[in-house]
Nucleic acid binder design. Structure first.
Lengths: 225, 225
DNA sequence: CCTACCGATCGGTAGG
DNA sequence: CCTACCGATCGGTAGG
């Protein structure tokens, strides 16, 4: 376990010690930080925060045990970075989407907007590189109250964009639940899919979206008068 | 931290050592085991399995650090006991319910049965003594594959009783999602409430049930032809 | 069920 | 970013 076969033993390489000078072929700093966050996201999701050691994370990016602390002042700071990175990506993708559907040729049908939001959310949650949001959802306990506040703010602003859509649909009679509770129940339903969804079998994200819409939205089959 | 003020220091009591003889006033064995399971459920839920030490659990029932291992062969066995106890209770309560609504004066309306199932589920999940199911839902990773199989069997048989109801509602056109996916999405929505529900404010379990039904079931307002 | 204890692991740090 | 290390904690056990 101490020296996996697929990683060269750093002690045997006799590479120069100390802070590496930034010569041409050397990887740059920002990348290493992001590599750590990504590796941490994968491990935190698979094994949980407490069961993941900082040594695991270091090994995953080819560092020695103490080195992650050169980039992050604590294991908890690494977790917070995973959560914030995940929420920022999700938020960016959702904002981009809403600019499209809110554009000059905006659909008047709020159900179409909800559909796009759900589809985008499944993408963020189940698509490639999708360990960040599950970690945020299931590792609340392991960050400090201050960090919790910051992450919650991001999460709230992400979900807040759904509320006017839900409110309109409720007013139109196709959403049979008050918007505030609808938000909680719907996100519960969607987010839980991270536990059971298997991309290699079963439904596609489009089919998932169709079924979720069918479950939540009471389609009005009647045409006009 | 080593000796909380509200617990007498056992080293100072000079009580008799060794295996206690079962004199009249002594608590009996089975109770101690159940006390451990209950304390473990509460701690596992609040702090997570990994962040809870067996010493925490021992202290919560007034034992010394090594004593839980007299009742359980490992910390993992204690976790499995929590999950199984939770599922057994939930299953019993649900079976009792279905015998009532399936009795001689059974309602023909499947929506009424779903309503009863949801209401009972909220009770199991959010009522008093409700740490067991959340622990089962969020600590899968920490039990062995063998234990996972056992718990999953209990969980599947619990949820399986919902499927015929969902199938009938789907056939009747008031559930707009195929039953298999409906089960996953609905349980996701319901179970997530364990994360946000606050009994001291907001809705009652009845109101919660009403809103969930409104969200999932497309009420047919039309009367017959 | 307590006492006394062990080996392992872990987060984190000093110094370069 | 590595080396070498520390103090703390933890699950679990022997023996009574």
């Amino acid at each position: 376990m101490a020296a996996p076969a697929n990683r060269p033993d750093p002690a045997a390489v006799a590479r120069p010690r100390g802070r590496p000078r930034k010569t041409a072929s050397q990887r740059d700093d920002g990348n290493r930080r992001l590599e750590l966050v990504r590796a941490a996201a994968r491990l935190f999701r698979r094994k949980g925060f407490d069961a993941t050691s900082t040594r695991d994370i270091a090994a995953a990016v080819g560092m020695r045990s103490g080195s992650p602390f050169y980039h992050f002042k604590s294991k908890g700071a690494l977790l917070a970075a995973v959560m914030e990175e995940g929420m920022r990506t999700a938020m960016a993708s959702q904002t981009r989407l809403l600019e499209q559907v809110g554009g000059p040729h905006a659909p008047t049908d709020q159900a179409l907007i909800l559909r796009a939001l759900i589809r985008n959310h499944f993408d963020v949650l189940l698509g490639p590189d999708s360990d960040f949001i599950p970690v945020m959802l299931y590792e609340w306990r392991s960050i400090t109250p201050r960090q919790r506040t910051a992450v919650r703010r991001l999460k709230d602003s992400y979900e807040a964009l759904w509320v006017p859509v839900l409110t309109a649909l409720h007013r139109d009679g196709v959403l049979g639940c008050e918007p505030k509770l609808a938000r909680l129940l719907i996100f519960g339903a969607l987010n839980w899919s991270a536990q059971w969804f298997d991309p290699k079998q079963g439904a596609s994200l489009d089919q998932l979206t169709d079924n979720a819409m069918g479950l939540f939205i009471h389609q009005n089959i009647d045409q006009g008068p």
